[in-house]
Amino acid sequence: MAKVPITLTVNGQTTTKDVEPRTLLVHHLREALYLTGTHVGCDTSQCGACTVHVDGEAVKSCTMFAVQVGGSSVTTIEGIGEIGHLHPLQQGFWEMHGAQCGYCTPGMIMSAADLLQHTPNPSEDQIRHGLEGNFCRCTGYHNIIRAVQHAAQHMSPQRELAQAADD
């Protein structure tokens, strides 16, 4: 199948690769860019393990072709934080034991990041509703809820400071 070039900025790094037009974004991330933190858990866009951010919004990267996001900026779990500089959600999942097998965790964190972006201080119900596009089979969601609450608590002051600085 003829390949077409696409240019993507992923986690701040811009690359151009030739891809088959039918390549899903998730496969492009995993197989061409070796960003294997984004996982595949189903083939019907139900599980959310493949959630990444495209231009700041959470998307299930199995629902988009790589060629659809040419020119876009993509953030994956590898780009949201790192050891020593963890994102508050990564820290929250660690502190609250929000991960067991770890397979759903990257998608869960990326979905939760989107939730907190729109709803900085979510209620328990809002967190449950916000994460209903992501399956976890290990945790019963109990500690995932606590992880997101932990992150929200630790992000709010930072936001307020940033807001104050902007004013």
Binding site: G37, E78, F93, W94, E95, H97, G102
Partner: peptide
């Protein structure tokens, strides 16, 4: 806190 978690929360698991 779990010692395995740093790899899982950063996408560095090896499945």
């Amino acid at each position: 806190k779990r010692v395995e978690d740093p790899r899982f929360i950063t996408g560095a698991g090896n499945y």
